[in-house]
Every structure is written in structure tokens, then in C-alpha cells.
Amino acid sequence: MRIAGPPRGPEQRRRDVLARLERESDIWVASADAGGLPCLVPLWFVWDGLAVWLCTRPTNPTGRNLRDGRRTRLALPDSRDVVLVDGEATAFTAEDVPAAAADAFGTKYGWDPREERAPYAFFRVRPLAVQAWHEVRELPQRHLMRDGAWLV
């Protein structure tokens, strides 16, 4: 693959990140347990304009790690159009999750985790930092959010 065209500016990269959060289906979720054992899994997600919503079993490693450690790094699946989101997770049961967040899974995927026989937990991940870049040429201005505030 050849690099073509000039690097995108930060404003365009922010627009591109937000568009991808709306349209993508999968996001890689990195977490770690109290001992530092890492876990990396792809999950379906929903973007509500302010936070990424995840849903997984509360007893699996990702569910436990997000509930107990609360910190995560999320990555959209494209190594040439990198988007990394560092965030803090808040856990919700199927009973206390905001209806709009849970309903969004049904709208986007045709799946309502609240209807499953096995319990599912929901996790709201509020972005604290966002990085985005195409190839090495955009690395110098990759930071689009820090400390939960957009820089552009």
C-alpha cells in the first residue's frame, strides 16, 4: 500500500473517528486483572455520542476486569486507520442499565442481551483520551482528546 495524499488535519480526524464509532460493529477491548494479566477481545459496541457501550458476561475475564479495574483501551479494527480510546468503565446490570443504551444493541444488532438466559453486564466507557492516525505521517498530531476533553 502506498501513502497517497496529504495527512488529515486534526479536525478531519475527529470527524472520521466519530463517523467510525457510529458505523463500526466491532471494537477490540483491552483490560487487565489485578495481577496485570492482560485480556484482549473483540466485542460489539454502541456509541451514544458521549460514551462507548459494551456488553459481555459479568463472569468472564473482560467483564470482571472492566468491573474491578475500570480502565480499558479500545481499538477500532484497522491497522492503517488507527483509533485508540482510553477510557474508564462503569458497570451496569441488565436491570439498571439505561434503557436507551440496552435498546441500542437491539437496534444495531438485532440482539437484546437483557433477553438472554445467561446474565449479561453492560459497561459504559467514557473516553479519557483518543488517538487517531493514518500511517506514520499523522503520528505527530495523533492526540485528539486528553483528560476527557477534545483538543480539536
Score class of each variant (00 low, 15 high):
residue 10 P to H: 03
residue 39 C to P: 00
residue 71 R to Y: 13
residue 114 R to C: 10
residue 10 P to F: 00
residue 40 L to G: 06
residue 106 G to F: 00
residue 149 A to D: 12
residue 147 D to W: 04
residue 119 P to T: 12
residue 36 G to A: 11
residue 26 D to R: 12
residue 131 Q to V: 05
residue 93 T to W: 04
residue 120 Y to P: 00
residue 72 T to M: 02
residue 38 P to R: 06
residue 100 A to H: 12
residue 22 E to I: 05
residue 107 T to C: 08
residue 143 H to Q: 15
residue 54 L to Q: 02
residue 73 R to N: 12
residue 87 G to D: 02
residue 41 V to Q: 08
residue 107 T to E: 15
residue 41 V to I: 04
residue 2 R to S: 10
residue 82 V to Y: 06
residue 119 P to G: 08
residue 86 D to V: 12
residue 120 Y to I: 01
residue 86 D to N: 11
residue 129 A to H: 09
residue 84 L to R: 08
residue 36 G to Y: 13
residue 142 R to A: 14
residue 69 G to K: 11
residue 49 G to S: 06
residue 47 W to E: 14
residue 138 E to G: 07
residue 111 W to C: 06
residue 1 M to R: 07
residue 105 F to I: 10
residue 124 R to W: 09
residue 8 R to Y: 10
residue 44 W to G: 11
residue 25 S to M: 10
residue 11 E to I: 08
residue 38 P to C: 10
residue 27 I to D: 07
residue 19 A to E: 14
residue 111 W to H: 11
residue 43 L to P: 01
residue 151 L to F: 09
residue 3 I to K: 13
residue 151 L to I: 14
residue 137 R to T: 11
residue 53 W to K: 00
residue 82 V to M: 07
residue 124 R to M: 04
residue 2 R to N: 11
residue 22 E to T: 01
residue 23 R to M: 01
residue 71 R to L: 13
residue 2 R to W: 06
residue 14 R to K: 15
residue 129 A to V: 11
residue 73 R to A: 13
residue 135 E to V: 02
residue 46 V to H: 11
residue 68 D to V: 13
residue 58 P to R: 08
residue 101 A to T: 02
residue 6 P to W: 00
residue 2 R to G: 08
residue 68 D to R: 09
residue 53 W to A: 05
residue 4 A to L: 12
residue 26 D to E: 12
residue 77 P to I: 03
residue 61 P to C: 10
residue 29 V to G: 08
residue 40 L to N: 12
residue 115 E to F: 01
residue 73 R to W: 15
residue 41 V to K: 05
residue 77 P to E: 14
residue 9 G to T: 13
residue 26 D to H: 06
residue 115 E to H: 05
residue 115 E to S: 04
residue 56 T to Y: 03
residue 25 S to P: 04
residue 18 L to F: 13
residue 73 R to L: 15
residue 27 I to A: 05
residue 82 V to D: 04
residue 86 D to C: 06
residue 46 V to S: 00
residue 57 R to Q: 15
residue 37 L to T: 15
residue 105 F to C: 06
residue 144 L to D: 02
residue 82 V to Q: 09
residue 77 P to T: 00
residue 134 H to I: 14
residue 133 W to A: 11
residue 65 N to P: 01
residue 4 A to N: 03
residue 104 A to C: 12
residue 107 T to D: 14
residue 140 P to L: 02
residue 151 L to C: 06
residue 84 L to D: 04
residue 49 G to K: 13
residue 13 R to D: 02
residue 138 E to R: 03
residue 130 V to T: 08
residue 118 A to Y: 09
residue 122 F to A: 07
residue 130 V to F: 07
residue 125 V to Y: 10
residue 99 A to T: 12
residue 69 G to M: 03
residue 58 P to E: 04
residue 119 P to L: 10
residue 79 S to M: 08
residue 117 R to L: 11
residue 85 V to S: 02
